[in-house]
């Protein structure tokens, strides 16, 4: 090959590369522009606000990093972060395991009955937070609720549930999981359907039992979806808020005062918009570190 020919090839490659990059960014452009305007700019403003004292009514007052210094010694804040982590430790395994199990279960039955059960499990996901909170307040009412009536059959005395500082957080996790399980099991199901049957047939010929099949085929083949569900539910558990606001307002005795609720209280009850922004950025960093660790451990969920 002459040196001239070599140069042409090189040029060709670079041009192709430019086109490739251009195409990729064109595909990303609509969303990137959207993020830039409706998330990055507001985040930038919030970052600016976090360096100020501002109640939304009077002009902002620049105070440098004082909000961040204050939050280091804000014991209520770190307590709420602790509650959030406990919540995540309850919520994430609960939703992950049950939706995966339900998906595997659904996948093992066939025909109309599968479709029927799918729809039933999915129904809670369609209900709005306000309405679903009202129904669960009904269900868990200490005196007249259905759940206590049910426990009564087994001789268990009436529980306060959302009115008990030891049970309330678990109840919130359970209710939130209840709404989402049907939805996440459908995501798992969609992924399960894509695993070629041939893999199972081959393993069965080797005499593998159901558990081995799950361990050596199903689970590894779900790698991408696993990562998605884990990352998304961890982030969601760190941001739990709506149910807390409607059902417990952080109580009883602060037992459900999760981080975002504390941020919300600071912003919209105390009108400390600067301080609440600072808190939110710290929460963001905590979540970011968690998620990056998860991505690192799982290799970003990309298949080799």
């Amino acid at each position: 090959m002459s040196s001239q020919g070599f140069a042409t090839v090189k040029f060709f490659i670079t041009k192709k590369r430019v086109a490739k990059n251009l195409f990729a960014y064109l595909m990303l452009a609509p969303d990137i522009i959207g993020f830039a305007i409706f998330i990055f700019i507001p985040v930038g403003i919030a970052l600016y606000v976090s360096l100020h004292e501002w109640n939304g009514l009077s002009p902002m007052k620049f105070i440098g990093l004082r909000n961040y210094v204050t939050l280091v010694s804000d014991s209520l804040w770190w307590h709420s972060v602790g509650i959030t982590i406990v919540y995540a430790l309850m919520f994430v395994p609960m939703i992950y395991c049950s939706s995966l199990l339900i998906a595997v279960f659904l996948n093992s039955i066939t025909g109309k009955i599968q479709g029927f059960l799918r729809v039933i499990y999915f129904v809670p996901f369609t209900v709005s937070t306000i309405v679903l909170s009202i129904i669960w307040l009904f269900m868990l009412d200490p005196r007249r609720g259905l759940v206590n009536d049910f426990l009564h059959i087994f001789g268990i005395s009436a529980q306060s549930f959302l009115g008990n500082s030891k049970q309330a957080l678990f109840c919130i996790a359970f209710i939130t999981a209840w709404t989402l399980i049907g939805y996440y099991s459908i995501i798992f199901l969609a992924a399960l359907k894509d695993i070629p049957v041939i893999y199972y047939e081959a393993a069965k010929l080797d005499g593998a039992n159901a558990f081995q099949l799950f361990k050596s085929i199903t689970f590894p083949m779900l790698k991408e979806v696993n990562l998605f569900v884990l990352v998304v539910t961890i982030i969601a558990s760190f941001q739990v808020f709506d149910q807390v606001k409607v059902m417990t307002s952080g109580g009883p005795a602060g037992a459900t005062n999760v981080a975002v609720f504390y941020i919300y209280t600071n912003a919209f009850d105390y009108l400390k918009l600067g301080y609440s922004s600072a808190l939110a950025f710290v929460l963001f960093v905590i979540m970011f570190v968690f998620s990056m660790l998860l991505l690192k451990i799982t290799g970003g969920g990309a298949r080799e």
């Binding site: 009202i134 009904f138 868990l140 009412d141 306060s160």
Partner: peptide, 12 residues
């Protein structure tokens, strides 16, 4: 009062 029987959670 809570110990005496006032409900710990009143909902709707």
């Amino acid at each position: 009062l809570i110990k005496a029987g006032a409900p710990a959670k009143v909902t709707i």
